[in-house]
Design a protein around this nucleic acid. Structure first.
Length: 925
RNA sequence: GGGAGCAUAGCUCAGCUGGUUCAGAGCAUCUGCCUUACAAGCAGAGGGUCCGCGGUUCGAACCCGUGUGCUCCCA
């Protein structure tokens, strides 16, 4: 077989992926085998592959490939999320480039464009996952707006509405003025932003004033001293510190803390709102933090959540001065007959208004000062726009009640029925559930599941899966003599709610609806695959998605949705910064795959990815992966070269020790990585396989069985070497699928259908524990001896191949017998003999408790050796002292477990024995 | 402001129930080698106040308290 000098990933990768798919290896249908199911966290349909996906999906692929090789019916379901805000924004932008505005289109026209866009560009990411080698069952590709899926979402909306869990109401919501929609709390990202704190004076209403609401010239209200208090002069204004002066025209009160001595006497007094000259009261509420600003807070119930609550508590009016775009709106001010200045603000953007209004208030002399201020500001996760708190009519889910129905949502995680990896995230989960807020599920968008509520001309509505049912329902309600339902109105005029549902309101059904568990309940597929086995996802969507899927599981299937959740950390760059477009530190993944090969990319990501921690991405990891691929390729080449040599049959244990030893190492690591993978320590497992291949197999084993030039190779060993390499490729396959498949086919001729992807992992020729330990110990001693001899050679300035004669202690002859043949070859010794004490003019060295030595014709220099022995002696003396001290400590003897004492005694005896040998060696020098 | 977590070699991290000659791995560094699978390699070596302080214990990287520094989540 001719092999190229190096492995060329690009050719092999395309070839094998096509072959796997064509062979149907990734397709799964229910059968008698146990299922291992993973549903992909559906990437946005607008998405392109980035490092986060790469990490996520590589992990899933490793788990699913390994499960497949362990005899499970492995099923990994691909798909995409319709991502209403992100997609709608993309489509709107695309239309804008064509000169079309969304407002000029009907809903149907817009959706037609959106679908066209989706068919054309959506799901690029799924193609990219193929490049990465992901073994997804493409026949099952799902989309959260597929017909059945859409109906499933509508169905559960109606169901939850009928159960009283979903309600409609006027509430403060997080408003994104950029996309003109409400957002759930989870979609708001708090950021620290440099802003200013404006100190604004609100003049007291002049008691002499005849008409406080008249457009008095505010300049007459310049602060003067009045004497409300006989002792202290009091200014005739109250000063308020605000970061949001643009909302001043919506102010309805000033609030102070009732315990605040400064303002105690002012409660109940009236002041005038600048510019608009509205008269408002000073009220008191515990909520106000006396430490912040001036201790006086302006209350704008229309534009702040907390203000809104205070407003409700104190029965204050709500005056909305901003429209859906975040522009100033005068509609709600018209009753007050606003002056020209106020009217001139109409349509002004909130941030322009902030500047303008500050100027205008300053012109009235009512700005005391402006300070720099760092504040937390909510921004939209999707558009980045600063969030406005806005009162609007929205649909909500009553999460407290819902959770009350399903306390298992919390307990299943806390008692590990659903296992979180890392477990520390259980705390986060617990904390969120205990402080859960209602979920705003409506969005003012068109791309998504349209809310199935139908309204009559008066705004009275019914909730039903479709118009027909809605009409029937409406008629029924009329018959019940409910006066809000008007039988006079034509039911044909029922109009569906314009808004659509939050994307997550569809994603939370993902693990069941990809198997049509909602749209076709209890079908054979969902019964077989659900609950799924493992979920792999980012920590950032633990609330958005994971928690809600668990709730959905209990509500709709009375079951957990998955057994294990593996949370990946965030991918950061080498300096620990988040990957972001702005920083430009997001690598081009497809470029990297082209450059290094998909296997190397997978390797590089996994080797640096400790379980549950953030991943610091560094291209050197990919380089290491590429070099590893090269190493594998070279080992393959060597195997073929050795195989072409003349074969020699010799089954003596001396000749086959290497194979016996490696087999046990292979089994040992196999068992150990099984445990690692169970615990999701994939990085650890990969490191172990890497080291097993590079160090144990290539550096030790292949060198041990390699015959000297022009000599035949041991038949048994070369056969085993091929076998072991194949097993190693199987172990590595889930991590690096392409090169292992390529090598699998280069090792032997394979029949059709004999591919590593569908091969099975197994433990072979497992010895008893005792035998295994003996063999592994012997291998260990062999390695130590070879290393020690190499070390001594370097220190003695001997070349690796300068001839030596090796002497080993006769007391250990039986133990050492199996390894001396290999030892002699690897240490280039002309002879090995067993002696009772070191021969003259030999160089001695210690291997464990064995005193070994060799002689050579060359002049030897004992000073270095002496130094080393003395160093070791000193260390051992110190060590012995500490052990003896411990053993002579009565309390230690009393309290320590017997096996610990035994170990200490053994340590002491070993040290004494070694010291004796060292002394002897030193005397010989 | 509330909560959670982290701190071990130059870097990234392992280190299980406190006890094995336990202070580890990989990368990086240094030294020597063109040894015929691989110089993209081989062989060998050095490198530490386990963040500071205090406590519990016969015994602490590990448990407790405290200080410092960092990260994340929530408001």
């Amino acid at each position: 077989m001719e092999l190229s000098k190096n492995y060329i990933p690009q050719e092999a990768e395309n070839k094998w992926y096509e072959h796997w798919v064509k062979s149907g290896y990734f397709s799964s249908t229910p059968n008698e085998k146990p299922a291992y199911t993973i549903v992909i966290p559906p990437p946005n349909v607008t998405g392109v592959l980035h490092m986060g996906h790469c990490l996520n999906n590589t992990i899933q692929d490793i788990l699913i490939r390994r499960a497949r090789m362990q005899g499970y019916n492995a099923c990994w379901v691909p798909g995409t999320d319709h991502a209403s805000i992100a997609t709608e924004a993309k489509v709107v932008q695309m239309l804008r480039e064509k000169g079309i505005t969304k407002s000029s289109l009907t809903r149907e026209e817009f959706l037609a464009y959106a679908w066209e866009w989706k068919e054309k560009y959506g799901g690029i990411i799924l193609q990219q996952l193929r490049k990465l080698g992901c073994s997804l069952d493409w026949d099952r590709t799902s989309f959260t707006m597929d017909d059945d899926y859409y109906q499933a979402v509508i169905k559960i909306f109606v169901q939850l509405y009928n159960d009283g869990i979903i309600y409609r109401g006027l509430r403060m919501v997080n408003w994104d003025p950029a996309s003109k929609t409400a957002l759930s709390d989870e979609e708001v990202i708090f950021k620290e932003i440099d802003s200013k704190l404006y100190y604004v004076k609100y003049p007291f209403v002049n008691s002499n004033s005849k008409n406080p609401n008249s457009n008095t010239d505010p300049s007459t209200l310049n602060p003067q001293l009045s004497t409300t208090n006989s002792q202290l002069p009091t200014p005739n204004y109250i000063m308020v510190a605000t970061t949001r002066p643009e909302t001043i025209l919506g102010d309805v009160a000033i609030c102070v803390n009732p315990t605040d001595e400064r303002y105690k006497d002012w409660i109940g007094k009236e002041v005038i709102v600048p510019i608009i000259n509205r008269t408002i009261k000073i009220i008191a509420d515990e909520y106000v933090d006396a430490e912040f600003g001036t201790g006086a807070l302006k209350i704008t119930p229309a534009h702040d959540k907390n203000d809104n609550e205070i407003g409700r508590k104190h029965n204050l009016k709500t005056i909305d001065t901003l429209d859906a775009d975040g522009k100033f709106a005068t509609e709600q001010l018209m009753d007050e007959q606003p002056n020209e200045l106020v009217m001139s603000y109409h349509g002004m953007d909130r941030f322009d208004l902030r500047k303008k209004i500050v100027e205008d208030i300053a012109a009235l002399g009512l700005i005391e000062k402006i300070e720099d201020y760092k504040g937390q500001v909510g921004t939209s996760e999707r558009t980045g726009a600063i969030i406005e708190s806005r009162l609007s009519m929205q649909w909500f889910m009553d999460m407290k009640t819902f959770l009350g129905k399903h306390p298992e949502t919390l307990s299943a995680v806390m008692n590990d029925e659903i296992k979180f990896h890392p477990a520390k995230l259980k705390n986060t989960y617990n904390h969120w559930l205990e402080n859960i807020k209602d979920w705003c599920i409506s969005r003012q968008l068109w791309w998504g599941q349209q809310i199935p509520a139908w309204y009559d001309e008066n705004g009275t509505f019914v909730v039903a899966e479709n118009l027909e049912t809605a009409q029937k329902l409406y008629v029924e309600r009329c018959k019940l003599n409910d006066t809000t339902y008007n039988p006079e109105l034509s039911t044909l005029n029922l109009k569906q709610d314009e808004d659509c549902l939050d994307t997550w309101f569809s994603s939370w059904l993902w693990p069941m609806e990809v198997f049509k568990g909602i749209s076709h309940p209890n079908n054979a597929e969902v019964n077989y695959y659900y609950p799924t086995t493992t979920l792999v996802t980012g920590q950032d969507i633990i609330f958005f998605w994971v928690a809600r899927m668990i709730m959905a599981g209990f509500e709709f299937k009375q079951q957990i949705p998955f057994k294990d959740v593996y949370f990946t950390g965030m991918v950061r760059d080498k300096q620990g910064r988040k990957m972001s477009k702005q920083l430009g530190n997001s690598p081009d993944l497809l470029g990297l795959i082209d450059q290094y090969g998909a296997d190397a990319v997978r390797f590089g990501i996994m080797i640096a990815s400790p379980a549950g921690n953030d991943l610091l991405f560094d291209e050197s990891g990919l380089e290491q992966g590429k070099l590893f691929g090269n190493k594998l390729w070279n080992a393959l080449k060597l195997l073929h070269i050795l195989n072409e040599k003349e074969k020699q049959v010799d089954d003596t244990s001396e000749s086959t020790f290497a194979s016996l030893w490696f087999e046990q190492r292979l089994n040992e690591v196999n068992i150990s990585i099984e445990q690692d993978i169970k615990e999701f320590k994939l990085s650890e497992a990969l490191k172990k396989i890497y080291s097993l291949i590079w160090d144990d197999y290539c550096s030790w084993y292949l060198e041990w069985i390699k015959p000297p030039q022009d000599q035949p190779i041991n038949q048994y060993n070369i056969e085993k070497a091929f076998f072991f390499f194949e097993e190693l490729m199987k172990m590595l396959h889930p991590f690096m699928p392409f090169i292992t498949e390529e090598i699998y086919h280069s090792l032997n001729d394979r029949k059709e259908g004999d591919d590593i992807t569908v091969s099975q992992l197994a433990i072979h020729n497992m010895q008893s524990i005792d035998e295994r330990r003996t063999i592994l110990n012997q291998g260990d001693v062999l390695q130590k001896m070879i290393t020690s001899i190499r070390d001594v050679r370097i220190k003695q300035n001997l070349k690796p191949k300068d001839e030596i004669e090796l002497q080993l202690p006769i007391a250990y002859q039986n133990e050492l017998n199996p390894i001396i043949k290999t030892l002699q070859k690897q240490s280039f010794a002309t002879s090995v003999s067993f002696v009772s004490e070191p021969v003259e003019k030999s160089i001695t060295f210690m291997v464990d408790k064995m005193q070994c030595s060799f002689t050579t014709e060359k002049e030897i220099d004992t000073t270095q050796q002496k130094e080393q022995l003395e160093k070791e002696r000193d260390y051992l003396n110190g060590f012995l002292l500490s052990v003896e001290k411990k053993l002579s400590n009565e309390r230690f003897i009393q309290n320590a477990k017997p096996e610990i004492i035994e170990i200490e005694v053994k340590k002491k005896n070993d040290a004494i024995e070694k010291l004796k040998i060292i002394e002897e060696s030193l005397n010989l020098l």
